[in-house]
Design a protein around this nucleic acid. Structure first.
Lengths: 220, 220
DNA sequence: GACTCTATCTCGGTA
DNA sequence: TACCGAGGTAGAGTC
C-alpha cells in the first residue's frame, strides 16, 4: 500500500461531477489499484475514490485514474509532504457474528416470539424472486411467511409483499399470511404493513439469544 | 491525522462482534477522533472502524476505542512499522453536482418539462409513509404527484405508487395522478409504471440547468 | 455478467 | 435526538 500526504485538488467525473478544492489530504493507493482520498474527518467514507479495476497514470504533479465505465478521477498534486509504500501480505479476513442470519435462526427455533402455536416449516423457502426467510404453519393450517430484518423499514415490507404474492400462486400454500419480524419496526413500515394486510412484530434479540443459551444448557 | 502502519489484531464488539487476525494494516486516526483500519484491498470500506465521538485509550501495545453506545474496538499492536502525524487544516468540502435534489428544484421551477399547464404546489409534500418529491395542480384542478430520480427504476415506480395510495386517502386531493421524472427511465420501470396507471417522463438535466441559467440572467 | 440483498452501511436533512 | 431517504452506495452471494 502506498500512502501519500499531499496538498491537492481533485475532480471526479462519472456517475456525478464533484470537485474538491485545494487542501492537505491522505491519498491511499492499495495493492489492487484502488485509490482513495481521505480528509481529516469521517472514519469511513473517502472524499473521493476509484475502485478497482482502474488505470492510474502518474504524471509530474498529476494523477489521472480512469476506469472502463468512463469515470475519471484527477488529482492535482500541489505539494507532496510524504510518500511511502508498505508491503502488506494478504491476511485472513474478518470474522463477523450477530446479524440478520443469527436472528433468523433464533426465530426458527423459537416461533413463540412471532406468535402462538406456530410450526416451523423451512428456512429460505424458495420463490421465483428470491427466498423467503422463514415459513411456518399455524395451528389452523394456514401458512405464515416471515421476513426477518435487524431494522424493519419500508423496503422490508415491500419485499415481504412480493414474496406473499408469489407464494399465493401456489394452491398448496394459499392463502399465505405475512409478518415482518425485526428488532425494531419503523413507524412508516408499520403503516405500510397494515395497508398491505401484513403483520409486524418487534423481537428482542438479546432475550432470544439468552433463551437459546438456556435451552442448550438444558439439553445437555 | 495520524497514520500508523502496524502488524495488529483487532476485535470489535457493538452492533455485531467481529475479530480480525494478525496482519499488517494501515491505522488512521483522524482529527475528529475517528479510527479506521484498512487492509491493502478495497478503496472504500475499512475492515474495522469507530466513528466520532469516541474515546481512545493508548496503552503499550494496545489501543482501546469506546463510545457512548457501549461499542468497543480493541487494537493489539504486535509490531509498529511506521507512525507519523500530519497537520491538515480544514479545507473546503466536496462540491457535488447532478443529483436528485438539484433535479427536483429545477423541475419545481420548470413544470413544463413534466407537462403543460402545471401549477407548482409543494416540494416534499408529507404523507404518513414519507414525503412526495413534488406536488402540482393541473389545469383541470387534478393533483399530480411527481417522484424525482436521477435514474428511474422499478423501486421509484413502487415508491410513487405508495405515495399515490396515501394521497388518495385525502378527499381534498383525490384522485391524484402520478409521474416518475428522471434523466433516464429504465424500460422495466416504464412497463411497471404503465401497469400501475402511472406516467413517466425523461427530463434533460443539462437543458433544465441551462434554461434556469438563462432565466436567472434574464431576471437580472 | 446481471441481479439481489445486506450493511457496525454512511451521510445529510428534518421534525 | 430520532427518524427517514439517498448513495458515485460498497460488498457478498446467487443465478
Amino acid at each position: 500500500m502506498r500512502v501519500v500526504i499531499a496538498r491537492c485538488r481533485v475532480t471526479y467525473a462519472g456517475r456525478l461531477s464533484a470537485t474538491l478544492p485545494s487542501g492537505v489530504r491522505l491519498l491511499m493507493v492499495k495493492a489492487d489499484g484502488c485509490v482513495a482520498i481521505h480528509a481529516d474527518v469521517g472514519a469511513y467514507k473517502p472524499l473521493n475514490w476509484m475502485t478497482a479495476p482502474n488505470h492510474l497514470v502518474e504524471e509530474p504533479g498529476r494523477w489521472v485514474v480512469t476506469n472502463a465505465k468512463g469515470e475519471c478521477l484527477t488529482i492535482d498534486l500541489e505539494e507532496v509532504l510524504s510518500d511511502q509504500a508498505h508491503a502488506m501480505e494478504d491476511s485472513a479476513g474478518l470474522v463477523k457474528d450477530g446479524v440478520e442470519l443469527a436472528l433468523r435462526d433464533l426465530l426458527a427455533a423459537a416461533p413463540d416470539a412471532i406468535g402462538p402455536d406456530l410450526e416451523f416449516v423451512q428456512r429460505e423457502y424458495p420463490t421465483p424472486i428470491g427466498p423467503v426467510d422463514l415459513l411456518f404453519r399455524g395451528a389452523d393450517g394456514q401458512m405464515l411467511a416471515v421476513e426477518v430484518k435487524r431494522k424493519g423499514e419500508i423496503d422490508g415490507v415491500e419485499q415481504l409483499a412480493r414474496y406473499i404474492e408469489q407464494l399465493d400462486h401456489d394452491p398448496r400454500l394459499r392463502p399465505v399470511r405475512g409478518i415482518l419480524a425485526a428488532t425494531r419496526v419503523a413507524p412508516q413500515a408499520q403503516v405500510l404493513a397494515a395497508e398491505r394486510g401484513l403483520g409486524w412484530v418487534e423481537v428482542d434479540y438479546e432475550q432470544l439469544k439468552g433463551e437459546r443459551a438456556e435451552l442448550t444448557l438444558f439439553e445437555l
